[in-house]
């Protein structure tokens, strides 16, 4: 089957809340190693789509296959995370009471069994891995700081760092540059492109300049289904996309 080569396969996914169709027969395929940007106006269903992939919301109908065979609609959040799907939220959520370093340690790819963690200690390799991630997200100097004391941009980065530590096969990144300065945005784009070299990534973003920086295939969502797909220049020339974005 052709779907086996794809990492993520959505077919005819629909979700409705009290009659409002958040997702309407959405279909999309993501290849192994691909980076995809998803854009669309407010209420297009971007976040709901992420919720469905990560198990937060169960679709009313449709199939979501991961790695060709795993049916994600059957699994809960933790199981999906442990299959190798990581997610960064729109609003940065980190463990505020923990230090930056502990935040990364908590996300480290390892058994999540409570009994294992009661006895396990971080070994040298794991500590090295944490240092590496801290370096990548440039928060090494703040590793003993409580996460609550970080700035908004730093929290965004910490969350990306946690994703890295998790080392998932698929990263879902929801508006990573919301509330960032221009220079931070550019840095983040660089970081994501870097990450995409070794991971499959879906980025949801409003910021067109940022999407342009990523320079990847773009999917435009509108009213819960795919409106257009292709290179950014291609889709932004699409008449329907212009209509949706500029209003009818």
């Amino acid at each position: 089957m052709s779907m086996t080569s794809s990492l993520l396969y959505l077919d005819g996914v629909s979700v409705s809340f009290d009659g409002f169709k958040a997702l309407n027969n959405l279909s999309m395929v993501l290849e192994q190693g691909e980076m995809r940007a998803i854009i669309g106006p407010n209420g297009a269903g971007k976040t709901t789509m992420m919720d469905c992939i990560t198990g937060k919301t169960r679709p009313d109908e449709g199939t979501i296959l991961f790695d060709g065979s795993v049916d994600l609609t059957e699994l809960d959040e933790a199981a999906i995370a442990n299959r190798g799907i990581g997610r960064k939220f729109q609003k940065p959520t980190v463990f505020e009471k923990h230090t930056v370093r502990t935040n990364i340690a908590l996300a480290l790819k390892e058994s999540r069994s409570p009994f294992h963690l009661l006895l396990a200690r971080l070994d040298r390799e794991q500590n090295a891995r944490i240092d590496e991630v801290l370096d990548t997200i440039r928060l090494g100097h703040l590793q003993k700081e409580t996460a609550a004391n970080l700035s908004h941009g730093q929290k965004q980065w910490l969350e990306i760092g946690m994703l890295l530590a998790q080392d998932p096969r698929l990263l879902l990144v929801d508006e990573p540059v919301a509330g960032m300065t221009d220079s931070e945005t550019a840095e983040t784009a660089k970081l994501l492109v870097d990450i995409a070299k070794s991971h499959t990534v879906i980025v949801v973003e409003h910021d067109m300049a940022f999407v342009r920086d990523l320079d990847v295939k773009v999917t435009v969502l509108h009213e819960g289904s795919v409106l257009a797909e292709g290179a950014l220049d291609h889709v932004s020339a699409d008449k329907r996309v212009i209509d949706v974005y500029l209003g009818r």
């Binding site: 990560t54 463990f95 505020e96 908590l106 999540r112």
Partner: peptide, 13 residues
């Protein structure tokens, strides 16, 4: 502190 976040990292809350 962040139950949902912990789930998305893979912890069985």
């Amino acid at each position: 502190d962040a139950e949902a976040r912990a789930r998305f990292i893979g912890y069985r809350v």
